[in-house]
Amino acid sequence: EPEARKIVEKLINNGLSPEDVKRWAEKNNNPEVKKAAEEYQKR
């Protein structure tokens, strides 16, 4: 999901860690963003 990846990169560029992004995604019920954050961590 390229859109989710863009969101993850934007949040990380704004100073969030991938863990923060995953928590944000869970709080906002956004499994695509959570998955993208996990993939981002593996890179």
Rank of each mutant, 00 (worst) to 15 (best):
E1A: 13
E1M: 15
E1C: 14
E1S: 13
E1Q: 13
E1L: 13
E1Y: 13
P2S: 15
P2T: 15
P2L: 15
P2W: 15
E3S: 13
E3M: 09
E3W: 05
E3D: 14
E3A: 12
E3Y: 02
E3F: 02
E3P: 09
A4G: 05
A4M: 05
A4H: 05
A4Y: 08
R5H: 11
R5E: 09
R5T: 10
R5K: 11
R5S: 10
K6V: 11
K6L: 12
K6F: 07
K6P: 01
K6S: 12
I7Q: 05
I7S: 02
V8A: 06
V8K: 00
V8W: 05
V8F: 13
V8Q: 01
V8I: 07
V8D: 00
V8T: 03
E9Y: 03
E9T: 08
E9F: 01
E9A: 09
K10C: 14
K10S: 12
K10R: 14
K10N: 13
K10T: 12
L11P: 00
L11Q: 03
L11G: 02
L11F: 09
I12T: 02
I12Y: 04
I12F: 06
I12N: 00
I12H: 04
I12D: 01
I12P: 00
N13I: 09
N13Y: 08
N13C: 13
N13P: 01
N13T: 09
N14M: 15
N14F: 10
N14V: 10
N14E: 15
N14K: 13
N14L: 15
N14H: 13
G15V: 04
G15S: 02
G15Y: 02
G15N: 03
G15Q: 05
G15E: 06
G15R: 02
G15K: 03
G15W: 03
G15T: 03
L16I: 07
L16T: 03
L16Q: 05
L16N: 05
L16K: 05
L16F: 13
S17I: 02
S17H: 07
S17L: 05
S17W: 03
S17D: 09
S17N: 07
P18L: 15
P18I: 15
P18F: 14
P18G: 03
P18M: 12
P18V: 15
P18E: 04
P18Y: 14
E19S: 07
E19Y: 00
E19P: 02
E19N: 07
E19L: 05
E19H: 05
E19M: 06
E19Q: 08
D20H: 05
D20Q: 11
D20W: 09
D20E: 13
D20A: 08
D20M: 08
V21G: 02
V21Y: 01
V21S: 02
V21P: 00
V21K: 02
V21M: 05
V21R: 00
V21D: 03
V21F: 01
V21I: 15
K22A: 09
K22C: 11
K22P: 04
K22L: 15
K22F: 11
K22Q: 10
K22G: 07
K22W: 09
K22V: 15
K22E: 10
R23V: 07
R23Q: 10
R23E: 13
R23Y: 08
R23D: 13
R23M: 08
W24P: 04
W24S: 03
W24M: 06
W24G: 04
W24V: 04
A25W: 04
A25T: 00
A25D: 02
A25R: 00
A25Y: 02
A25F: 02
A25L: 04
E26I: 03
E26D: 12
E26S: 01
E26Q: 03
E26R: 00
E26G: 00
E26N: 00
E26K: 00
E26L: 00
E26H: 00
E26M: 01
K27F: 09
K27G: 09
K27V: 13
K27L: 14
N28M: 12
N28P: 01
N28F: 10
N28A: 09
N28L: 08
N28C: 15
N29D: 10
N29T: 04
N29A: 09
N29L: 07
N29E: 08
N29V: 05
N30T: 06
N30L: 15
N30E: 12
N30D: 08
N30W: 15
P31R: 07
P31H: 10
E32Q: 12
E32N: 09
E32W: 06
E32K: 08
E32P: 06
E32F: 08
E32A: 15
V33Q: 01
V33H: 01
V33N: 01
V33K: 00
V33Y: 03
V33F: 04
V33E: 01
K34F: 14
K34I: 12
K34H: 12
K34N: 05
K34Y: 14
K34S: 10
K35G: 04
K35E: 08
K35A: 12
K35T: 08
K35F: 07
K35Y: 06
K35H: 08
A36V: 12
A36S: 05
A36E: 10
A36Q: 07
A36F: 08
A37W: 06
A37G: 02
A37E: 03
A37D: 01
A37N: 03
A37M: 11
A37H: 01
A37Y: 05
A37V: 14
E38T: 04
E38S: 03
E38R: 02
E39Y: 02
E39N: 05
E39V: 02
E39R: 03
E39H: 05
E39P: 00
E39Q: 07
E39S: 04
E39D: 12
Y40G: 02
Y40S: 04
Y40P: 03
Y40I: 08
Y40H: 07
Y40W: 12
Y40Q: 04
Y40V: 07
Y40R: 05
Q41W: 08
Q41K: 07
Q41T: 07
Q41E: 15
Q41A: 10
Q41R: 06
K42F: 07
K42Y: 08
K42I: 08
K42Q: 12
K42C: 10
R43V: 13
R43W: 14
R43S: 14
R43Q: 14
R43L: 15
